[in-house]
Computed example of a mutant assay.
Amino acid sequence: MRQLAPRVLGALVRRYGHFDTAEDAVQEALLAAAKQWPVDGLPDNPRGWLVTVASRRLTDLLRAEQARLRREQQVAQWMVVPQEPVADSDDTLILLFLCCHPSLSASSQIALTLRAVGGLTTSEIARAFLTTEATMTRRITRAKQTVKASGARFSLPPDHADRLGAVLKVVYLIFNEGYASTSGAQLHRVELASEAIRLARMLHELLPDDPEVVGLLALMLLTDARRPARTSASGELIPMDEQDRGLWIRPAIDEGIALITAALPRGPLGPYQLQAAIAAVHDEAPTAAETDWPQIAALYGVLLQLTDNPMTALNHVVAVAMSQGPEAGLKLLATIDEDPRLTVDHRLYAVRGHLLEMSGNPGAARAAYERAAELATSVPQQRYLNKKLAGL
């Protein structure tokens, strides 16, 4: 149902418009399916079943709305013809670009797409934006209303350039939530990571010559390839230097390396290409000890010139520490450890604890790990940090 939801929503918006009401109708259709399918069995055409049920519910909602507005005569145009065949096209990509409408702010574009296409809950999106669920609910509601008021047609825009940056960022955030969940008992949400990769493939088919589209797809493939080795049988987090690299998904690595190798010479160089190149260096190393940390540190240095991202700066600290020693890493960490975007994130304190542990200062490392464990919202991350504490 997670895979079908954006396709069903796209079908309804294409046919009827009314983005916000259509989403409500789709949610009710999904609820009906969750109750009925386990009893009656999966329909022969699950998507068609959902479109039909959602269409009927949408008609009911629109009827009620029109009744309230004293415009009953317009209801007929939204009536569903039960015999009408459901098109087999996938409108997810059109829905993705619609959510990234230029009349919306960048944050609203991302929030709306994560909700309508990525299937994230409002609370998950709120955590990604470091805000409250109530604030995010209002933001998403306003975004739907803005798209509706713009009169945007449900079709792929002829010029993608004005929305592509937001679209890529949205797909990247969906993948991140799937690869390293911000909360809950599981480290991975495979369905989200897989959906992000699917969307990236669709974008690549649409824009095969855009180097950043290629870079994003390569980055996600190279990163997701490590997923089978990131957790133990009991669900405990395993850091990269301790992972069994024989479990990494080699076809995904080969595809990702081929993509980024072809994209880099095309230019212009962008953040997703650089991140993919860093991921490729990690994946190409036969063992953790053979990782080319100086090259990774250099790539992060270039990436920092293109983006003011605190996580990039933090990863640069790690790369410098691994290539030049923990003292060099701690010195560099001191230049960013008061960044307000980092002080609320457990990863700052986890990195500090790791570098202090490497430098032979277990007392200070313990204090850093304790703070990291307090801030971590993912259960596997909390367990890993507490395990580090126990080791000290």
Score class of each variant (00 low, 15 high):
Arg2Asn: 04
Ala5Ser: 13
Val8Tyr: 00
Val13Asn: 07
Arg14Val: 02
Arg15Val: 05
Asp20Tyr: 00
Asp20Cys: 09
Glu23His: 10
Ala25Gln: 06
Ala25Val: 08
Val26Cys: 12
Gln27Pro: 01
Ala32Thr: 10
Lys35Arg: 15
Asp40Met: 12
Pro46Cys: 12
Gly48Ile: 04
Leu50Ser: 13
Ala54Phe: 07
Ala54Arg: 09
Thr59His: 11
Ala67Tyr: 08
Arg70Pro: 00
Arg70Phe: 07
Gln73His: 06
Val75Thr: 11
Gln77Trp: 07
Val81Thr: 14
Pro82Gln: 12
Ala87Trp: 04
Asp91Ile: 07
Leu96Tyr: 01
Phe97Asp: 01
His101Lys: 11
Pro102Gly: 09
Ser103Trp: 01
Ser108Glu: 07
Gln109Cys: 15
Ile110Thr: 11
Leu112Cys: 08
Leu112Phe: 05
Arg115His: 05
Gly118Glu: 05
Gly119Lys: 11
Glu124Gln: 11
Ile125Gly: 02
Leu130Gly: 07
Thr131Glu: 09
Thr135Asp: 06
Met136Asn: 09
Ile140Gln: 01
Ile140Glu: 01
Ile140Lys: 03
Arg142Ile: 08
Arg142Lys: 14
Ala143Gly: 06
Lys148Asp: 13
Gly151Glu: 05
Ala152Gly: 06
Asp159Ala: 15
Val167Glu: 05
Lys169Tyr: 07
Lys169Met: 13
Val170Leu: 08
Ile174Met: 13
Glu177Tyr: 05
Ala180Pro: 00
Leu192Phe: 08
Ala193Asn: 03
Ala200Val: 07
Ala200Cys: 13
Glu205His: 12
Leu219Ala: 13
Arg226Glu: 01
Arg230Thr: 04
Ser232Glu: 09
Ala233Gly: 14
Ala233Ile: 11
Ser234Arg: 08
Gln243Arg: 12
Asp244Lys: 08
Asp244Phe: 02
Arg250Asn: 13
Ala252Phe: 07
Thr261Pro: 07
Ala263Lys: 05
Pro265Asp: 03
Gly270His: 01
Pro271Asn: 02
Tyr272Ala: 07
Ala276Glu: 04
Ala277Lys: 09
Ala279Trp: 01
Ala279Gln: 00
Val281Gln: 05
Val281Ile: 12
Ala288Pro: 02
Ala288Ser: 13
Ile296Gly: 10
Ala297His: 03
Ala297Gln: 06
Ala298Val: 04
Leu299Met: 12
Tyr300Val: 02
Val302Asp: 02
Leu306Val: 06
Pro310Gly: 05
Leu314Glu: 03
Pro326Trp: 00
Ala328Val: 04
Leu333Asn: 02
Glu338Trp: 08
Glu338Lys: 14
Arg341Ala: 15
Arg341Leu: 08
Leu342Gly: 04
Thr343Ile: 13
Val344Gly: 08
His346Gly: 04
Arg352Met: 10
Gly353His: 05
His354Asn: 10
Glu357Arg: 11
Met358Ile: 02
Asn361Thr: 14
Asn361Val: 13
Pro362Met: 10
Gly363Gln: 14
Ala376Phe: 00
Ser378Val: 06
Gln382Tyr: 00
Lys388Cys: 15
Leu392Arg: 13
